[in-house]
Design a protein around this nucleic acid. Structure first.
Lengths: 149, 149
DNA sequence: TATATTTGTATGTATATACATTTAATACAA
DNA sequence: TTGTATTAAATGTATATACATACAAATATA
């Protein structure tokens, strides 16, 4: 559905202006669905993302600042997100002996189990959410990668 | 720059999975820039968006729930955003005589002045932000509109 | 008309974002 | 070695998101 109709705006000043609004609106569309999917599992989209980063480590610890670097939202707050995950028993936190300022984070078996439980459903959901055919999705990824320069 | 390199992720399960992450990441890229642009003017991106909706009314009042419908983020809270704008003198709120549950919102001259002041800069900024040529932007808008179904 | 339901807005609470500040540990230069 | 700067993480505060609930006004219906 055309963005103009969805938000009842007659027209945009130019295509670049529409594109920024379109990205914001489409983001909201995605996150709203993700949110309602993850809610029964007690996870927010950001907490889910941090868990995925930790799983990608294959058992190796990763510091809080490295998590921050890999997060989708650079301005977010890895420290507090990790704290939430720790309270749920999904990660453990160890002081790093080599540098006592740093804190090593590892995903627990409980965290891995939860991710495995979600995995296939998430993949299915992404495909249902994005109503594009295979070549269009590739095109979208190409454009988004290029857009950011 | 490829998303995989930006967030240091080796690969995605499939292109649909990458696309959802890509949309989230690109959204953060856009909003971060928007935010730093609007901050000197004392506006958040959402407050700016509500002001634009009000300007689009050309002087006609609009209710809080109509603002909500047109907002980019449907789960946001128009009531509180309007309250913030009112505190800054950018909008006024009138009880609707025909239906005393409703509240009519109108942008003030001060609000219009602020928008005019921002207008050209925002358009320039959008074009700089989105590093695509004219036909690519059209393509992106087409894909985003189609994506949501 | 009386009662129930719906609607429009406001408010409460938890989480997240954005950014400044604090604190402790480490690195490095004088 | 001492003092200064830098770094990692945590914390404080304001705003926004997500969703539940409250409350008054309007509407439906018995």
């Amino acid at each position: 559905m055309r963005l103009e109709d969805e938000i009842q705006q007659k027209e945009f000043k130019d295509a670049y202006n529409k594109a920024t609004v379109n990205l914001l609106f489409t983001h909201s569309y995605i996150v709203t669905k993700q949110n309602s999917f993850l809610k029964p599992f007690g996870l927010s989209p950001e907490q889910y993302n941090v868990l995925r980063i930790l799983r990608g480590q294959n058992g190796n610890p990763i510091t809080v600042s490295s998590i921050q670097d890999r997060m989708l939202n650079k301005m977010s707050n890895a420290s507090r997100l990790v704290e939430k995950l720790k309270q749920k028993g999904l990660v453990i936190r160890n002081e790093c002996p080599a540098d006592r300022r740093q804190v090593d984070i590892i995903i627990t078996d409980k965290g891995l189990d939860l991710l495995n439980q979600l995995q296939q459903e998430i993949l299915n959901q992404n495909q249902n959410l994005i109503k594009l055919d295979a070549s269009e999705v590739d095109q979208l990824n190409f454009l988004l990668d290029k857009l950011r320069g």
